[in-house]
Design a protein around this nucleic acid. Structure first.
Lengths: 209, 209
DNA sequence: TATTAAAGTCACCAAGTGGTGACTAATATA
DNA sequence: TATATTAGTCACCACTTGGTGACTTTAATA
């Protein structure tokens, strides 16, 4: 019983597993976490739910595998650390912050993941969080900590506020009337105001901290 | 059939309705929105679910009434606008921001409401949002707009980022390992760093904008 | 005290939920 | 080609879900 190495044949375990993972994402995006039920997942995947138990062990494990296998780093990947940093990472951090603001706005699945993480404790989500933290820690240590020295913790707190701010605003914009503090978060003009605010706050930090 | 004016008697419609509303809050706090099911609500309230349909029309309406009747303004109420403002509202806004940061951390029910609002579109939640916006608008127009003049929109964007930041950090702290950007959001020390960050960013805004 | 309206209970239903055992169908190898 | 193995289907189960009609119990008032 050799594997067929996933050709486009009728019966293919790997392909079928992927179909379920795709179904998860589709439902997540369109209906949210609460709609992730076995019967519906199978319906969307166009396959029998029995296979979910056979291949993943159950819905929970399927969801975990989705979280584990989804690539959330495409936005960060492009951000290679420049060779020489002369501004304490100002330009780099600003770019990261702004592109994150745009990335989260676009990736509906990632939005749901953020929300999911605020709603439920789940090992696979915790893993994702830890990975994000570890990734950030590396950047902070290599780029900004040296520049801010004794104030590095204060800088981290500021970054926490700014990043948290972009997350919340993107999540808020996706659901509500989207006007927050009088700023229309769905309009390009409003989003530009937020970008300017982020840049301003970061600039002030680099100047005054 | 006169009303008994809600004495502590055995059969009392008003009291019974309140019991259901209390049950909603309890479940919301302990298990989250997803756990708001008719049978469970009735069980927690210690009454028959039929009464939910009789008195409210159904679970949906009961939830709506909970959202409508809960007082979310206790944190803002204390914040009476001072008579004379000479600092462009700096002290007032700072106090508002910091006390909001603490209020949201404490009120578990409000946290769930914030989350709910990011998860689902619901008329009663929209109403709550609109009320918040209207309230904020009044403050912005009377206090900060005059001070910032042509930059008032930019100031609003900054406030949006800062408020959104406190919301997200409080929500995040309530669920996860609670370390965000290397800051421990459950430890008093970490929360103090965030407070300092908020104050610093606001101060910079008042100085440099 | 008898009557009546409302408060509250209970048994029951239909639809949806997660989950499984027994089956059929395809396919790799002996 | 025969056979074992795995992919995939299907019918079915027990339980939970939202929801209701028929009932009993309380208590205000004629």
């Amino acid at each position: 019983m050799e594997k067929e190495a996933a050709k486009g044949i009728r019966r293919n375990k790997a392909q079928t597993k992927q179909r379920f993972l795709d179904a998860i994402e589709q439902i997540l995006i369109t209906k949210g976490v609460a709609a992730l039920k076995v019967n519906d997942i199978a319906k969307v995947a166009g396959l029998d739910k029995k296979l979910i138990y056979k291949y993943f062990g159950g819905t929970e494990q399927l969801m975990d595998e989705y979280i584990r296998t989804k690539d959330f780093w495409s936005n960060v990947k492009g951000e290679k650390v420049p060779d020489a940093i002369t501004d304490g990472g100002h330009a780099f951090v600003e770019d990261m912050l702004l592109s994150q603001f745009d990335y989260v706005a676009k990736d509906k699945a990632f939005q749901k993941l953020l929300l999911w993480r605020l709603t439920e404790q789940r090992e696979s989500l915790k893993k994702l969080t830890d990975a994000q933290e570890a990734n950030g820690e590396t950047l902070l240590q290599s780029i900004t900590d040296p520049h801010f020295g004794g104030q590095s913790t204060q800088f981290r707190s500021i970054m926490a506020v700014l990043i948290a701010g972009t997350y919340y605003l993107d999540l808020y914009a996706a659901v509500n009337g989207s006007v927050f503090c009088g700023i229309d978060l769905q309009a390009e003009q409003g989003r530009n105001e937020i970008r300017k605010a982020l840049s301003f706050l970061l600039q002030s930090t680099y100047k005054n901290l």
